[in-house]
Simulated assay, not measured.
Amino acid sequence: MSNVSSISFSKASVEKGSLKRSEYLNLPDLQFFLWCQHKYKLNRGVYNTIDDWFYNFGIKQVIHRRIYILAFLEFVKENDLKQQEEKKFIRFGNGGLTRTLQQFVNVYKMVK
């Protein structure tokens, strides 16, 4: 098993267009989740809900969904940095996750 915490999101990977070939995107599901948990402080239930939401939104391919999941988590991290630093896990509150996913879609003008 690889050391999940040592895998980092590389800006160079995005710029070179090699994001789809990036090591962390191709990890088995549990290892990818553990990497996300370490980097973004989310629990398995929130991760599964985000993954399911993007699937139902129409993003069927796993690797594409993972790219959207990471973009969404960065969106959350940037917009709520102060609050998240103080907590063990990301918290959205009642209905907050769906509302935040919809905001993300609207900001990036994703079309279903």
Rank of each mutant, 00 (worst) to 15 (best):
N26Y: 10
L27R: 07
L27W: 03
L27N: 07
L27E: 00
L27I: 10
L27M: 00
L27F: 02
L27Y: 10
P28H: 00
P28Q: 09
P28L: 01
D29N: 07
D29T: 00
D29V: 06
D29E: 05
L30G: 04
L30I: 09
L30R: 05
L30C: 04
L30N: 06
Q31G: 09
Q31L: 02
Q31K: 08
F32P: 04
F32E: 06
F32A: 02
F32V: 08
F32Y: 12
F33P: 06
F33G: 05
F33T: 00
F33R: 07
F33E: 06
L34T: 03
L34I: 00
L34D: 00
L34S: 07
L34H: 03
L34Q: 13
W35G: 09
W35I: 02
W35A: 06
W35K: 12
W35R: 03
W35Y: 09
W35F: 11
W35P: 01
C36H: 06
C36K: 03
Q37A: 08
Q37S: 12
Q37C: 02
Q37R: 12
Q37D: 11
H38S: 15
H38L: 05
H38E: 15
H38P: 02
H38K: 10
K39M: 08
K39V: 14
K39H: 11
K39Q: 07
K39R: 13
Y40G: 13
Y40V: 08
Y40E: 02
Y40P: 11
Y40N: 00
Y40H: 04
K41Y: 03
K41V: 03
K41F: 06
K41N: 09
K41P: 08
L42N: 00
L42W: 08
L42D: 08
N43G: 00
N43D: 07
N43Q: 06
N43E: 04
N43V: 06
N43R: 08
N43W: 01
R44F: 14
R44W: 13
R44H: 13
R44V: 13
G45T: 15
V46A: 11
V46T: 15
V46I: 13
V46N: 05
V46P: 05
Y47M: 06
Y47A: 11
Y47I: 10
Y47R: 03
Y47C: 05
N48R: 14
N48Q: 15
N48H: 09
N48T: 15
T49F: 12
T49R: 15
T49P: 04
T49L: 06
I50C: 13
I50F: 01
I50V: 12
D51W: 01
D51L: 10
D51A: 12
D51F: 08
D52L: 14
D52A: 15
D52T: 15
W53A: 13
W53S: 12
W53H: 10
W53N: 13
F54D: 03
F54Y: 11
F54T: 01
F54Q: 02
F54C: 09
Y55T: 14
Y55M: 02
Y55G: 09
Y55C: 03
Y55E: 14
N56I: 14
N56Y: 12
N56F: 15
N56C: 13
F57K: 01
F57S: 05
F57D: 07
F57T: 12
G58Y: 04
G58S: 01
G58C: 09
G58M: 06
I59M: 11
I59E: 10
I59W: 02
K60N: 12
K60V: 14
K60P: 11
